[in-house]
Amino acid sequence: MDKLKAMDTFVRIVDAGSLSAAAAGAGQSLTAVVRSLAALEQALGARLLNRTTRRIALTDEGRVYLERCRRILAEVDDADAALSERQQQPSGRLTLTAPVMFGSLHLAPVLAHFLQLHPGLRVDLLLVDRVVDLLEEGLDLALRIGTLPDSSLVARPLGSCRRVLCASPDWLAAHGPAPEHPSALAGCRAVRAGGLDGGGDWLFSRGAGAPVRVAPQTVFSSNQVEAALQACRRGVGCGRFLSYQVRDDLAAGRLLRLLPDWEPEAVAVQWLFPHSRLLSLRVRAFVDWATPRLAERLSERVA
């Protein structure tokens, strides 16, 4: 049995979601894929996949072995790339994920430019406002905003963004002048966008003073930022958003910034990798090229 080929087949099965799909993607017969998996499991003395006629699922042993296989195959790819033109010209498939709004506004244009420079590259961009398991979903890279819940991932700083409290001119006209202290917002009608503003109290801080906690009344919440922004623009309530999400609205006067001197600490924006020392050339090349361009976008001042 060719162990590396069997490992590759195993990873293909997991990524494809079925034995037949893996066989089609690899240009092999279904029989060959089944035999390869069976031989690998026999050699390891462990079942890697529980499979029925409709679906497959990783066993605990399979989950651990999958991560090791990805590492080994990535090392083999890197060794091959060192002796090929791929070391000078990124190529192949780059898979990454990012939050929906940041990905649409900033990451997608940067990716399009990078693809123009490297026509041998293919990109799969997954935009979701949830934490994606990079290993489970076979992704090379993630852009994440906020605290990192998984310490097993390797992070590289990209920049930061602020949490900005906003309201529409109509809301301010109906609820009096702009507040000068966070306490004026106690019980105010609030619009929520999930993630970093999931539904708890709002914390404000200024200088070395003690933080001020305010409990707003949530009247509208959504897991999609744009929906929450629409409600805020229409005067449903005030809302706290990340600076890049409201930059255009603030510049156009559709929203007004409240209590800028009381904004909490900036939120970190970071690249995340499964394994830093096993990054493929295409991942390293993209991150090195994209980081200063995205950092510049993040550093643009909020009105």
Rank of each mutant, 00 (worst) to 15 (best):
R68E: 12
V283P: 07
R257V: 11
E137R: 14
P157N: 07
A285T: 01
A173G: 00
T97E: 02
F273G: 01
P179F: 02
V34A: 11
V267W: 04
E263T: 13
L294A: 04
S160I: 08
A252C: 05
T53D: 13
P264S: 03
S205R: 12
V191R: 06
L153G: 07
K3V: 15
P90Q: 10
A142C: 02
L148A: 13
A184N: 03
Q42Y: 08
A184I: 01
S104M: 07
V214L: 04
L19M: 15
C166L: 05
S20W: 05
V34M: 13
S222C: 06
V110D: 00
A57E: 14
R213G: 14
T97S: 09
R63E: 11
L37K: 14
E300H: 07
L203H: 10
C166Y: 02
D261K: 07
R93Y: 06
T9H: 00
R206A: 14
Q88R: 14
L117M: 07
L281D: 10
F220E: 09
R284V: 11
Y65W: 10
H175Y: 04
R247D: 02
T291W: 03
P177Y: 05
R35T: 03
G103V: 05
A186I: 01
R71C: 10
D197N: 15
G207S: 06
G138Q: 00
S299Y: 07
F204M: 07
H106Y: 05
S183T: 15
V76S: 08
F220K: 02
R301V: 13
D124R: 03
R293L: 04
R51I: 01
V191K: 04
S104A: 13
L256Q: 15
A155K: 10
D133H: 09
T59Y: 02
P149T: 02
L134M: 08
D60V: 12
D201C: 07
E137F: 15
R240Q: 05
L256I: 11
G138T: 00
P216D: 03
